[in-house]
């Protein structure tokens, strides 16, 4: 499992983004988190070379949601051989935008006193779900009607054993807000909304039947290319 946090949102465990053998002994592992509304890239830097590393800096290529470092990479003391340090890099979402493939891909350059190194990583789109993403009920109904059927995508979430209220609470801790709950023919149905940092809204219908571990998720969004990533977020949140 991941590291718990105050708001209860799930954080993916760190993985290796830059192996030491590709970066003259510098190993970087990391993950992304949204902590109380603040976006962070959380990094572990390990020196697997035989000399000291210093003068660290980081830069992002333009990306789909304008992610950019909101400050310098704070490595205040040189990194000795075999030493690991943990660094949190605050992020903003007002950097230059360029649509990436896949959508949530981020290209990063890290520099130290030895060289400049490049790697790619992917962030969970749930990191971009804002705290004020609960849509007015009237607006939800109008928007749901307004978004064409071609923009609706349907997904199955398997092996889920939460009831509707538990699922709703869990999703809310990741800024997926329940606007209405209904029951029709024995199925519990949640209507939910999400707003991304770039003001894209995603509307969802989550169906579940007591005793059936497979949920049906329908997503409606004007920018429908985000839907598969939002589905991944539902899976990640509900199963962790």
């Amino acid at each position: 499992g991941g590291v718990g946090m105050a708001s209860g949102a799930y954080v993916v465990p760190k993985s290796v983004w830059l192996p030491a053998m590709k970066a003259k002994g510098l190993e970087i592992s990391g993950t992304f988190a949204r902590r109380a509304g603040v976006l962070q890239m959380e990094l572990s830097l390990t020196n697997k070379a035989m000399s000291i590393m210093s003068d660290f800096a980081i830069q992002f290529n333009r990306n789909s949601f304008g992610l950019a470092p909101a400050g310098p990479l704070q490595v205040l003391t040189p990194l000795s051989p075999n030493q690991t340090i943990e660094v949190s890099l605050p992020l903003s979402t007002v950097g230059p935008v360029m649509k990436m493939e896949p959508l949530t891909n981020l290209q990063v350059a890290v520099k130290n006193n030895i060289d400049v190194f490049y790697f790619s990583c992917q962030y969970p789109i749930s990191m971009l779900f804002v705290e004020d993403g609960k849509m007015e009920r009237q607006v939800f109904l109008a928007t749901w009607k307004d978004i064409p059927n071609e923009n609706e995508a349907q997904f199955q979430i398997k092996d889920c054993h939460l009831n509707a209220d538990a699922a709703s609470a869990k999703l809310q801790s990741s800024n997926i807000f329940t606007i209405a709950k209904r029951n029709a023919e024995g199925q519990d149905i949640l209507y939910q909304s999400i707003r991304l940092t770039n003001s894209i809204w995603v509307l969802s219908e989550l169906r579940m039947q007591p005793g059936n571990p497979s949920y049906t998720l329908s997503l409606k969004c004007r920018a429908s290319e985000v839907s598969p990533f939002v589905f991944q977020s539902y899976e990640m949140v509900l199963k962790n």
């Binding site: 009237q138 109904l141 209405a180 209904r182 029709a184 149905i189 209507y191 219908e205």
Partner: peptide, 20 residues
């Protein structure tokens, strides 16, 4: 009154998607 109307609208939405 508006709230009642919205409650009903969500019920209709759920119903219409269950039995299209």
């Amino acid at each position: 009154e508006l709230e009642d109307g919205l409650d009903e609208a969500f019920s209709r939405l759920a119903e219409s998607r269950t039995n299209p």
